[in-house]
């Protein structure tokens, strides 16, 4: 099968969905003429024209809020918020408007919008250009949250997001944009709320999201040499969350580790931990382990940053320690 990058896969999804449905349009800072800082929107302006592919001023609150206004009146906007950190600038529009507009108006409106945002600690980024803040929104009923980890998933999930009649936050890890993977030429979509076992194993269940999926898979190879066979589960969407798949795996292994790039307190791992102990407590042989970024603003210096973000080595060491306990 052909291999393309994560960014190319997203770009294909946008081309295909905009071709399929003329109510779909996209705007954001620098998305039109230069095709986006992350090159995800390349070629859209030429193909679909300036009415459907628009560069916006630096106005995140308007960008996110306008998507709600457009969505409730019959179009299907896609907004690119350049950095997930900048979602803080339009938090009201995401948290109070997008998430709640349908409910507080008694179901009068559908709110079919997608906010795409890049995230993650990568080269040169620091506190306000590096965060994985999906947990902030997981706390908010009314939004769906997507965290693709491969080019294949990125494409299929983005197509599903665009077709969904609800607000969807779609987080793209910047370190993944140039990673390559197999993506078929044929049309496909990937359902929300269905986890995938990325690697089978019997000893420990590892739930990982976004970039942490590949790091967990690398860790799995190292751990195999030590005789530890982990199972890596990628939920793909944390809202809706396929908790049943996680429960089933924990029933088999008796151990749960959650690996996320967001920081620890009140994180995605904390929520999954709570759910699993509620659901399958009796199957757990040891305490649930959370491997996450540390509770500090992400520093610029690489030496410091590497202490904050979970590395493959750290995942391996922590799992080994858990087993020895």
């Amino acid at each position: 099968m052909r291999k393309i990058t994560f960014a190319q896969a997203l770009n294909e999804a946008l081309h295909e969905e905009m071709m399929r449905d003329e109510k779909v349009f996209i705007y954001g800072q620098d998305v039109a003429v230069v095709g986006g800082l992350w090159k995800v929107t390349t070629g859209l302006l030429d193909k679909f024209g300036p009415d459907r592919v628009k560069d916006t001023p630096l106005s995140e609150a308007a960008m996110a809020g306008m998507a709600v206004g457009a969505a409730i009146t019959g179009t299907r906007p896609i907004v690119e918020i350049m950095f997930a950190d900048f979602l803080a600038v339009c938090f009201d529009e995401v948290y109070n408007k997008a998430a709640k507009w349908r409910y507080v108006h008694g179901g009068m409106f559908e709110v079919p919008l997608v906010i795409r945002s890049s995230m993650g600690a990568t080269f040169g980024g620091s506190a306000e250009h590096a965060q994985c803040n999906e947990a902030l929104f997981m706390h908010t009923p009314g939004i769906k949250i997507v965290l693709p980890s491969t080019p294949y998933d990125a494409k299929g999930l983005l197509k599903t997001a665009i077709r969904d009649n609800n607000p969807v936050l779609f987080f793209e890890h910047r370190a993944l944009y140039n990673t390559k993977g197999e993506v078929p030429e044929e049309e496909y979509t990937i359902p929300f709320g269905k986890a995938e076992i990325k690697k089978q194993g019997e000893d420990i269940t590892v739930v990982a999201t976004s970039r942490m999926v590949s790091r967990s898979l690398s860790a799995a190879e190292d751990l195999k040499k030590e005789g530890i066979n982990i199972e890596v589960i990628d939920p793909k969407t944390i809202v809706p969350l396929d908790i049943e798949a996680i429960n089933q795996s924990v029933k088999k292994t008796g151990h749960l580790v959650i690996v996320e790039e967001g920081n620890r307190t009140g994180g995605v791992g904390a929520e999954i931990t709570a759910l699993v102990q509620e659901n399958v407590f009796d199957f757990l042989k040891k305490p649930i382990l959370r491997i996450s970024s540390l509770d500090v603003p992400i520093p610029f210096n690489d030496n410091l940053k590497n202490m904050v973000i979970p590395s493959t080595t750290k995942i391996v060491e922590e799992i080994k320690t858990l087993i020895k306990k």
Binding site: K23, R52, G65, G69, A71, I72, T73, D92, H105, M108
Partner: peptide, 29 residues
Amino acid sequence: CSEKVLGMSGTQGGVFVIATGAALSLKLL
């Protein structure tokens, strides 16, 4: 609300962005 009365933002100022987005939608359609 109704199909033509688009509702209200509980935080003051939400009206501007929603109304502007609705106008963008009307223009596109």
